[in-house]
Amino acid sequence: MNYSTRYDQRKKRRLNRLLNVAIGIVAILIIYVAVKVFFTPSASEEVIADLEQEQQQEEQQEQSTETEQTIENDRDIDSTQEEVENEELREEEEDAEEELSDGEWQPIGTVQSEPFQINFSKDHVNWKEMTHAIQYATGLYDDIIIWRIENGGDSMSAVGTVSDAANKNTPYRVRIEWVTERGWKPVEVIKLSSNPYL
């Protein structure tokens, strides 16, 4: 009788141990599943993240395309403006009365360094040197009126339209060209029959 009771007790202990181990395994599995569910991004979150990344890439591509289009438009505008300026020069040439002289001048000298870069800003030394070259070619000094100085068709030439107060309607058009390390040189002076800027 005692023997069966001990046997039952041992059997219960083994069963308890087995149950405890099983409960422990189940608890570990529950914790693992909970971590997976609550702390691992779901498939839908991953899809949303992928979609957001694709949208950002598309926006960057659109911005890049817009920038390229803006640059292309600016080039087209510059090209059109240059064509208009060249057309104005041709029209002025048709109105020209008299070519006074051609290529008889020397470069005026310069304080600018090489490589030369043309600058049409009125407070820049280049503007002063262009004005001086035009004055030298026309003989107009203190009473000169500068109607316009513009690009002469390339980065090493300019064209100025000037007059004095008494001859506003018949200005001079002066072409000057840059001579390396020697400055602006007048190459052509034409007296116009009318002033395109009046």
Rank of each mutant, 00 (worst) to 15 (best):
M1L: 11
Y3I: 13
T5L: 14
R6V: 05
K11T: 08
R13M: 07
R14N: 14
R17L: 15
N20S: 11
V21M: 13
I23W: 05
V26D: 02
V26G: 06
Y32W: 11
V35M: 09
F39P: 01
F39D: 03
S42Q: 06
S42D: 12
S44K: 12
V47M: 10
V47Q: 14
D50S: 14
L51N: 11
Q55S: 11
E62G: 01
T67A: 15
E68P: 00
E68D: 09
Q69V: 01
Q69H: 04
T70Y: 15
T70W: 10
E72W: 01
D74R: 07
D76M: 07
Q81E: 09
E82P: 00
E85P: 00
E87F: 13
E88W: 08
R90Y: 03
E97Y: 07
L100H: 06
L100A: 01
S101A: 12
D102A: 00
G103C: 01
T110P: 02
N119V: 04
F120S: 08
F120G: 05
S121C: 05
S121T: 12
W127K: 06
M130N: 05
M130W: 04
M130R: 07
T131I: 12
T138K: 11
L140D: 03
D142S: 14
D142Q: 13
D143C: 04
D143Q: 13
I144M: 15
I144H: 05
I145M: 10
G152I: 01
G153T: 04
V159W: 04
A165G: 08
A166F: 12
P171H: 06
Y172D: 07
Y172Q: 11
V174L: 11
V179T: 10
R182H: 08
K185P: 01
P186T: 02
V187K: 03
V187R: 04
K191M: 04
L192G: 01
Y197M: 09
Y197I: 08
Y197V: 07
L198A: 15
